[in-house]
Amino acid sequence: MTIAQVLSAIQLGLLYGILAVGLYIPFRILDIADMSVQGTFTMGMIIAAVFSYNRMPILGIVVAVLGGAVFGIVTGILHTKFNIPSILSGILTMTALYTVNLLIASGKANISLIGKDTIYTIADRLINNDQVTRTVVTLLIVILMTLAIAVFFHTRTGLTIRATGDNAAMVRHTSINTDNMKMIGLSLGNAMAALSGALISQYNLFADVNSGTGILVVALAAIIIGETLFKRNGVTLGLISTVVGSIIYRFIIAIALKFDVLPSYALNLISTIIVIIALMLPAIKETRERKTKKRLHQELVNKYLNDVNNLSAEVEKRIPGQRTNGKSGGKNE
């Protein structure tokens, strides 16, 4: 791989890492399967593209994040107030967002940003190096985003959201509104998904209403890869491992495409295979550890039994000797 390909993999890994964090919040912290992330990701792309087309790229990112947060609340209301299952609530929101995205794009299926200002072109006027600009800007945004979310989940509200995901019934017994906590979590997750979409549209200079197809598998792959490498040890490490997992995933994709393992249109299949392998690894590792523990236990048992047998044999040898000595001593007397 060339330096340009390595930098591209890192940049895309960081950008999709924001999406993975958006899925991590409802999926791991709230224990909710949120399908609406796919719709808000695309919505973020379309909103940012529309604003960038009209020379307002930074405002477009802000509006995209706010739009993602709003539709995250919509999903939360459907789930908490109308008792619709979380996965169905997400699907309903995602389906509705397809039409919303077309309305935002004025009925256009895609928007080109070639020749338009983006956050990257604005920053590049100061740095004058496209690859360095993309890497630095993306890395800075990801660091700030991860830090802000990690700090938030250590505040009182953040800890309450985490407790809601662990045991909602217990939190309700403390007179805390768990519905509000779920809506805040879903809003934050979808805001991050929209932020990812907004940045990717400005990165690629292109936005399409069908860009979200299969994107959940990409985010899930990043989460699973990160957890496989770092395990699940707290929210902060979980956020970092998710971003790292996203970068590793992009490298795997880049290597697969470079060596023509599968054609370029098979990205979703590659993503699915990666997720399956990543999900299998913990189970395989657990099975191996169980077998190792069983073998060690059997070895300890065998060693203990051998020691007992050896000790018994030694005792039996000594006792007859003592009896013989006792009899000979009596005769001498």
Rank of each mutant, 00 (worst) to 15 (best):
4 A>E: 10
4 A>W: 07
8 S>R: 05
12 L>Y: 02
21 V>G: 02
24 Y>P: 02
27 F>R: 08
36 S>H: 12
42 T>H: 04
42 T>Q: 07
43 M>F: 14
43 M>S: 13
45 M>G: 09
52 S>R: 13
53 Y>T: 07
53 Y>Q: 12
61 I>Y: 11
61 I>C: 13
62 V>G: 05
67 G>V: 03
68 G>D: 14
71 F>T: 14
81 K>S: 14
83 N>G: 03
88 L>Y: 08
92 L>T: 13
93 T>F: 13
95 T>Q: 07
95 T>I: 11
97 L>G: 09
97 L>K: 12
102 L>D: 05
109 A>H: 11
121 T>G: 02
122 I>P: 15
123 A>I: 05
128 N>F: 14
137 V>E: 08
143 I>K: 06
144 L>C: 13
151 V>P: 03
152 F>R: 14
153 F>T: 04
159 L>A: 05
159 L>I: 14
160 T>P: 05
162 R>Q: 15
164 T>G: 09
165 G>T: 06
166 D>N: 12
177 N>P: 15
177 N>I: 04
182 K>V: 08
183 M>V: 12
184 I>E: 03
185 G>A: 10
187 S>P: 06
187 S>M: 11
195 L>T: 10
196 S>Y: 01
197 G>Y: 11
199 L>F: 07
199 L>K: 02
207 A>L: 09
213 T>C: 00
214 G>I: 04
217 V>R: 00
217 V>C: 01
218 V>I: 01
222 A>D: 00
225 I>M: 00
229 L>K: 01
236 T>N: 13
246 S>H: 01
250 R>P: 00
252 I>W: 00
253 I>V: 08
253 I>Y: 02
254 A>M: 02
258 K>W: 06
264 S>G: 03
271 S>T: 03
273 I>Q: 01
273 I>E: 00
277 I>A: 01
280 M>Y: 09
283 A>H: 12
285 K>D: 09
289 E>T: 09
290 R>G: 07
298 Q>Y: 06
300 L>C: 09
305 L>C: 10
307 D>V: 12
311 L>E: 06
313 A>M: 09
315 V>W: 10
318 R>H: 12
323 R>W: 07
323 R>N: 05
324 T>G: 08
326 G>M: 05
327 K>F: 12
331 K>N: 07
332 N>H: 14
333 E>P: 03
333 E>W: 12
333 E>Q: 10
